[in-house]
Computed example of a mutant assay.
Amino acid sequence: MAAVAGMTAPGGGEPVRVLIVDDDALVRAGLSMILGGVPDLRVVGEAADGGEVPAAVAAARPDVVLMDIRMPRLDGLAATEALRAQPHPPEVLVLTTFHADEQVLRALRAGAAGFLLKDTPPAEIVQAVRRVAAGEATLSPAVTRTLIAHVTGAVPGGPDPRRERALRLLAGLSEREREVAVALGQGRTNAEIATDLYMSVATVKAYVSRLLTRLDLNNRVQVALLVHDAGLV
């Protein structure tokens, strides 16, 4: 994260750099006003279409990208997939007007860290950006359960390659790793997992990092989806 002259977060840290991607100029302006007034966040650029994202990211070097899912030329899903495939990509927060949109689920599978409804209160938007920048989940337990409940299921009575793959991946985990994975699938926070499994929060964070490495996933939301695919929640 590059320092910005004259702008530091409270405590001397560098502000979180945010890129806003939305085809609606009014939405971009509103988000810029919300985030621009917070000392520890800084809007470093805007883009009006997914096709503009690579150049915008290269120029602005954001930590977090707020990505509209529906854009006329290149949509947010394709842009997220391309961005997350790059080395050391920024985190992506999907912006949408629908909280149970199949496209949102596809974006999460592609590596987005979570999603925000466009009518989310400003304070919650700010907190979501902070959590993503810190590597935390951006979905509340209730929202996580809503999302994973809408994942497309297998044909009744037929083979389920997604479930078989999930079970195979999870079978390689230790018992403790599996417990943490299931807790993530239930939408539990680090603090809740620590309490339930009698761990410190630091230990939970270490287990989450280990899970992401072992399962070759980008974030805890993808772990939650994998656990749901396996039928464990």
Rank of each mutant, 00 (worst) to 15 (best):
R130Q: 13
A149Q: 12
M199C: 12
A183N: 05
A181N: 04
T144D: 03
M199R: 14
V126N: 08
A202M: 09
G114D: 02
R130F: 02
A181K: 02
T144L: 13
V204W: 09
G158I: 09
V180Q: 12
A128L: 02
V132N: 00
I148K: 06
L105W: 01
A206M: 09
T97H: 11
G157D: 01
Q127D: 14
K118S: 07
T97A: 15
I125D: 03
G153D: 14
R162S: 11
P90W: 03
V182I: 15
S140D: 11
Y198K: 13
F115W: 04
I148D: 00
R168C: 13
G135Y: 00
L184C: 08
L169K: 15
A134S: 10
L197R: 08
D160M: 03
G111Y: 05
E91I: 04
G135V: 01
A100N: 13
P121Y: 04
G172E: 14
A123R: 13
R178E: 11
T120I: 08
L147G: 13
V104D: 07
A166P: 01
Y207E: 15
A183L: 06
A206D: 15
E179R: 13
I125A: 08
G157L: 03
A166S: 05
A123V: 11
Y198I: 10
L167A: 11
A142G: 05
L184P: 07
E192T: 12
Q127F: 02
A154L: 09
A181P: 01
P87Q: 10
L167E: 13
E175W: 06
N190S: 14
E177C: 09
A194P: 09
R176H: 12
L95W: 00
A100L: 10
Q127T: 12
F98V: 14
V126G: 06
R145G: 07
A137D: 12
L173R: 06
A202V: 13
E179A: 15
R131S: 14
G185D: 06
V201F: 05
L197V: 09
L212W: 04
A112P: 04
A206T: 09
A191F: 09
P87Y: 12
T96A: 06
A154E: 12
L116E: 07
V92L: 00
L167M: 12
G187I: 03
G157C: 03
E102C: 05
A194Q: 11
L93I: 15
I125T: 11
L211C: 10
T152H: 09
Q186E: 15
